[in-house]
């Protein structure tokens, strides 16, 4: 292994922790998600710091940030961009939409119509936008943080399972702990602190780290363990169907990123366990009203570490 990325990642984590208080685990997971070149879905109530997290991630890595508020009348062109006739040149000129940013915060994604949702999700998957016959690559790194409000609120279009699959992880931040909330009220506004947050890493370094993640070793024993987990999800009684092979791949990448964050150059079972719920829960198709988080925890608890 070339260099030990541990210290710089720890510095990035530390910087994030000064903004988002008392959410060490979620920060670590979202960082792992970014490192694994995945996209992040945050499901939470308004006002718990989803936007702040996205902003902080963008700043720490020195990335260009764009926020997109999803509403029911948002159109695909509002995201992807549009070609407009330019009287000066006498031709059409493409005006790139907000999706052409390194970090995109898609706020309340489930409020947009399915057509608009799928425009974004396709761009996320293919990392390129095709419009008027021309294909334009999205920037690299490209990281989407989407948020959605939990529960069936009026005027929402819940994401179908196939599109949930585009997100590597799903997290919820939850209410802050008492001490953290106290600090939140006493200290200066988070947004102001954010402005003073110096970038710890560069976009180029992030790309290197992302490449490094893919090189983290997954020993045969670990692959066996991963397969056992996937198989257990397919045999679990509360599930209509289990994890797909793509989900298995996602688990591997997330665990590799987690191992890198831990400063390891190989994945151990604990890494896989740490990311399992975040990666697997939203892909599990649970029988009515059972809890995917509980089921995911059950699967981890029931599969023996080889």
């Amino acid at each position: 292994m070339s260099s030990n990325p541990g210290p710089e990642l720890n510095a990035a984590l530390a910087a994030l922790s000064t903004i988002i208080l008392g959410k060490e685990r979620q920060l670590r997971l979202s960082l792992a998600c970014l490192l694994a070149r995945g996209h992040l879905l945050i499901e939470d109530l308004p006002g718990v710091g989803k936007t702040t997290l996205a902003l902080a991630l963008a700043r720490v890595f020195g990335l260009h940030f764009q926020r997109l508020q999803f509403t029911s009348d948002l159109l695909p062109a509002d995201i992807l961009g549009v070609s407009i006739y330019d009287t000066g040149t006498g031709g059409f000129r493409f005006h790139p939409g907000p999706v052409f940013s390194e970090v995109v915060l898609a706020d309340e994604i489930n409020r947009a119509s399915p057509k608009t949702q799928s425009a974004l999700l396709e761009a996320m998957e293919e990392r390129q936008v095709t419009s008027d016959g021309a294909t334009r690559a999205l920037p690299d790194p490209f990281f989407v943080i989407a948020t959605q409000n939990p529960g069936e609120q009026i005027g929402t279009y819940p994401l179908p399972e196939s599109q949930l699959d585009r997100f590597l992880m799903r997290l919820s931040l939850g209410y802050p702990a008492a001490a953290a909330e106290r600090a939140l009220l006493i200290e200066p506004e988070r947004r102001d602190l954010l402005a003073g947050l110096p970038p710890v890493l560069t976009a180029a370094r992030l790309c290197e780290l992302q490449a490094e993640v893919r090189r983290v070793r997954t020993a045969p024993a670990l692959v066996d363990y991963l397969l056992a987990l996937v198989r257990a999800s397919r045999e679990h009684r509360a599930l209509r169907h289990g994890l797909s092979p793509r989900a298995g791949l996602a688990l591997k990448h997330a665990a590799q990123a987690w191992a890198l964050l831990e400063g390891r150059h190989g994945v151990i079972p604990e890494d896989l366990q740490a990311v399992f719920t975040a990666v697997a829960a939203h892909r599990l198709s649970v029988a009515e009203r059972a809890d995917a988080q509980v089921v995911a925890a059950e699967i981890v608890a029931s599969v023996a570490v080889p």
Binding site: I268, P269, V300, V305
Partner: peptide, 8 residues
């Protein structure tokens, strides 16, 4: 425990 990794 069955599900416990070596580090834990």
């Amino acid at each position: 425990a069955v599900h416990e990794g070596p580090a834990d």
